[in-house]
Structure formats: structure tokens, C-alpha cells
Design a protein around this nucleic acid. Structure first.
Lengths: 172, 172
DNA sequence: GCCCAACGACTGCTTGAGCAACTATAACCG
DNA sequence: CGGTTATAGTTGCTCAAGCAGTCGTTGGGC
């Protein structure tokens, strides 16, 4: 039967989604070895790359795939585990910062090299440089078109939502 | 500061994940207009493309990003909504089929054209044919490398996990 | 034929996430 | 100033999903 589902558009989306799913699975496995979920890794990465290793809860929510209540809870867990602390904001008593602790930094340092290696192994290393460049170029255009509110909060537009997730964008 | 997080590998993953998140969000919005979640859409699509519009629960689980218990529950909901029915398997009394009802087919027919249009609008239409081909080629290689157990169940390897998800691969 | 291992589906329990309601603070406006 | 509106964060509730355990069924070894 000439199937509607053989439509090349379906195929295209299938490829993108499967690639994402595959990479997510690989990454999750590696992160789990270090006791981090994808979301936790994204949170700690976002914080670590921010000035002072800290970010206001709202900004953190804006930079991740989480709602503000989601952030409250992740930070709860990570604070309980000693990776983060909350710090009051001096200017605005409504706000509070999530700050990475030394233990958090250490955990991240233990995790990152393996993570980068995973990326290389399953993604970037699979393609020769030109093919990779072409892939990234295409992805960038799709991202720019489709991504709803790229990166809010405190960094600029082009930097990326780092690794993590495997579970994206449920609100909006 | 020369930041570890500017590593091109991080950037690459960020692009892929953001593109995926952006598309997921767009697709979810359109699917929701037709009263379907991403998972439900994937389920109904998988069934509709299968011979007899049916699939055993286990095979359905293998083809989707769901565990078998997850499938049990999605099928529960969709059966309650009249989109699917369960049918006993004549050969093996342990197994049962999930079958798309006429209402399910109709719902899918209402949903699909808009969905294809969304794909075109936010994804395939964003690139000229060669760029798209290059993108897909790269994705295919990444997918083949990273995707854990591509498509189990009853269809062959190349066809894709259709649209849907936005929420990928939690088991393994 | 009988037993035991494997399999298919379902259920209880737990977890993570979003939404909406709520509280406290800040900012604005008269 | 005093009151109204907006903002930051948290919490209650709900829901979807996975894991592990259960029950019935099947098939294989003897």
C-alpha cells in the first residue's frame, strides 16, 4: 500500500527524534553513573557557567526546560544532596539565588569529561568535519525557526541548552 | 574566562536538543488542538500503519518510547476515549491486540494534514533540498550509532519513530 | 503427561513535573 | 504616604511514566 506514513517529512522528523532519543539514552546512562539526572546536570551546568556560580530561581527556570515550580523542586533535591545552596538576594528579598557548592563543582568536574567523551563517541565523532558542519548548520536553522523562547534569563541568544534533558519543553 | 562550556561538542548537542525541543513544542501544540498528546499520536500512528490497524501490546511498547506498563495505561486512556479497542489474540491467550477504531482513524485523519504542515513549516521547509539532505544524512548516521534498539516489534529498521514524543527514552 | 522456565499483560507504588493558588515583597501611581 | 498591581518563590493537587511484583498462559525438557 502507498502509505501516508512513508512521507519524507515523517521520515525526517523520525530521524531527528530518534537521534535525540538515542543520544539522550546514552547520556542519561553516563550521568547516572555520577548520580545525576539529565535535569540535574543541566541545572548544575547552567549555574556553573554563570557568574558567581549562581542564578536566580526564575532565570534558572527560563534557561532550562523547567517551570518555576519544577526548579523549586530540583533545587530542593540538589540542596538536600549538598550540590547546591540557596542564598538570599540582597537587593530583592523576593528573589533567591541557587548557588553551586564546592561539592557540586566537584561532582560536575567528575562528570564532564566522560560526558564530552560520550558526545564525541556517539555524535560528533560519527561524522567527518564537513558533514558535521553541514549537520550543525541545518540544525541551527531549524532551531532558530522552531525554538520558542531560546534562552531567557541571563545569557545571550546563541549559547545552547547544554546536553541534559531527554525530556523537553512541556510548557508554553 | 575561557569556558569549558564553549566546547564545540557542548554546542553541537545543544543545537540538536534545542531543535528537538522547539519542534516538540510546536507539534505538541498542534496535536493538542486535536485532543492528542504526543504519546497518543505516536501510538495511534504506529497502529494505523500496521497491518490490520493493530499491534500486540508488547510490540507497541517496543516501537514506542514506552515501557509495557506505560502502553497498558495509554491504551487504557485511549480505549476510554474510543480511539482504540483491545482484541484478544486467537493464537496466544496471553497476548492482546490494540486496534484502532473508526473514530481513531478519523481522528488521525483530522490531525495528520496539519501535522505534516507543521513539519514542513518548522523543519523541512526551513532548508533548501541539498541542505536538508545533508542534515538528514548526518542525523541518520548519528541515529544509527546512538539509537539503542531502533525499531523492535513488527516493522523493519529504517522507518522512523514518527513525530510524537517530546519525551524520549527513559528506560533501557 | 508433568514440571518449570519464559512470556504477556496488568497493578501497586513511587517519582518527577506542571498548573493553579497562595504569600511575601517590590514597584508604580495617585 | 496608601493602595493597587506585578513579580519571586513555594506548595497542594493531579497526572503520566517506570519499576517491580503478580497472575495466567505457553512451551520445552524429561
Amino acid at each position: 500500500m502507498t502509505n501516508v506514513f512513508d512521507d519524507p517529512r515523517i521520515t525526517a522528523v523520525g530521524l531527528l527524534f530518534e537521534a535525540h532519543a538515542g543520544l539522550s539514552a546514552r547520556f542519561n546512562a553516563q550521568l547516572e553513573e555520577h548520580g545525576l539526572s539529565a535535569v540535574e546536570f543541566e541545572v548544575i551546568t547552567r549555574l556553573a557557567r554563570s557568574p558567581g556560580n549562581q542564578l536566580r530561581m526564575t532565570d534558572l527556570a527560563a534557561q532550562t526546560s523547567l517551570s518555576t515550580s519544577g526548579v523549586t523542586r530540583v533545587v530542593d533535591r540538589m540542596e538536600r544532596d549538598g550540590l547546591l545552596t540557596r542564598r538570599a538576594c540582597p537587593n530583592d528579598r523576593r528573589s533567591s539565588y541557587a548557588v553551586v557548592t564546592a561539592a557540586g563543582i566537584q561532582r560536575l568536574n567528575e562528570t564532564l569529561p566522560g560526558h564530552l567523551q560520550m558526545i564525541e563517541q556517539w555524535f560528533t565523532g560519527q561524522l567527518d568535519p564537513e558533514a558535521l558542519a553541514a549537520l550543525l548548520d541545518g540544525l541551527r536553522r531549524v532551531r532558530d525557526a522552531a525554538h520558542p523562547c531560546a534562552t531567557a534569563g541571563s545569557d545571550d541568544v546563541s549559547p545552547e541548552q547544554v546536553a541534559a534533558t531527554g525530556n523537553a519543553t512541556r510548557r508554553h
